[in-house]
Design a protein around this nucleic acid. Sequence first.
RNA 1: GGCCCGUUCGUCUAGGGGUUAGGACGCAGGAUUUUCAUUCCUGAAACACGGGUUCGAUUCCCGUACGGGCUACCA
Length: 510
Amino acid sequence: MENIRLRFAPSPTGALHIGGIRTARYNFLLARKYNGTFVLRIEDTDQTRYVPGAEEYILDALRWCGLSPDEGPGIGGDYGPYRQSERKSIYLKYAEQLVASGHAYYAFDTPEELAILRSRAESDGNTFKYDAKVRHQLTNSLTISQEEVHERINRGDDYTIRLAVPQDELVLIDDLVRGRVQFHTNELDDKVMLKSDGMPTYHLANIVDDHLMRITHVIRGEEWLPSTAHHVLLYRFLGWEETMPAFAHLPLIMKPNGKGKLSKRDGAKLGIPVFPLSWKGPTPENTFIGFREFGFLPEAVNNFLAFLGWNPGTDQELFDMADLTRAFSVEKIGKSGARFDFDKARWFNQQHLIKMKSEDLLPWVKPIISEKGHHPDDAFLLSFINLMKERVHVLPEFWDQGNYFFTDYTHLDEKMVRKKWKPELREAFNHLEALIQTIDDFNAENIQHHVKYFITEKELSFGAILPILRLSLTGTTKGPDVFATMVLLGKPEVTRRISNSYLHFDKITG
RNA sequence: GGCCCGUUCGUCUAGGGGUUAGGACGCAGGAUUUUCAUUCCUGAAACACGGGUUCGAUUCCCGUACGGGCUACCA
């Protein structure tokens, strides 16, 4: 595996969903594992589907995921340009070479004519296929004279160049994931190589570029498997079969309900992210929330994604990027489609959150708190993160579950107050408040010691006091250790909240 | 419809001719006598079906069913 080169080749037609990120991830992983090169190529040959901003999104998304390309548009490299629209003339040359060697031909049939043939066949219960059986009845350089071909081209008639797929041959593909797959050429159509606007189709561009860019392995989605036979034929006809890259077709990521492959819409429908980053489209229907905005760590997203269709063969599930690179192998990629399981994604995120050092989490949590208008110092934030990180799944929950550390709580669990507050506790709480005032060294151990003493003194129980104490401090019965919470809140705030809470409590129970 | 790919707990999966079919998420119960969470323990839960091959198939082969993909001058 020397000098391996892999590429990720998305088309800039909008936001890139996580299926694409997984494909990029696998390509990246294999490249890194063998000290190879990871190339980004933009496949913008369909000018009608070009979406402004999409290319930028792709690069941003890759970078956020830690998948920065070694070569690509805006990055450079020895095999550029890396945007197919900028390589137009290259494809024409090879398309014409294909015609010259008899493996392709000029076709003048218009889309309208073909549509008619298609619908006619359909009404007869058949399907129309532009192939060896019918190409001699259609308008192309095989059926009209060379003069007429030149004449039509010279006068500016629209034409395409189609691949002349031979008859009665077997095309063998040794897929790294699926083993040997074979296609019979009689089932293959004469695919368009060069479109009438002068742009190549994916099929031609991808083969020409993979060859010219010295790509050694093509890892892509299973949706490409059926056209791989055409691709093999192209390598053969262009004389490049010796250096043809190895193919690995990935199982698809399926919708959470298992019905079909995951699509952009599924996210909005279920209220879950299926994109790495948020994407603002022209309409609400084309606007999507990303894993980043949802509060996921890129490492967790990658860990989760890597396991959709791959596993190391051990019981280990938690991987950082470096571990993943070490453990990854194409042989361990599965064959069957993997369902997108958001609960598992949340679990991965939680585990990564727990595993991370609080210092490393600081830059992720800080913006969430400051967004709410609070700017505590790092030491405070660090203690806060320590207390909270093992009870949140996604970043915004640091605020949702811990906002009372920064401001008076806005929500009080009245049901629990009714359950725990007895008016006769008021006297005890007054004592407790006074007792807390006297604690000089306000650390958790010390506070606990005093509170414990107080409880036994008053012949009360932990279970009677602590929940209501927590309620008075945080408004909820859930949360980190009460004494640790008190330390972080600080003595003045603790006593303030305790004395303030009587009013609310009496009102609720009274 | 045609072609191609696939099928182990609800989900992600390990395994592979003879296993109590393993792990993880989720779910249920329990422990950690302040909650929540973490952590730990326990539990329910799977080899699609039918034929072969074999002493023996979940594992190999062939069918069937089911699922998925492709079937554009889209990628």
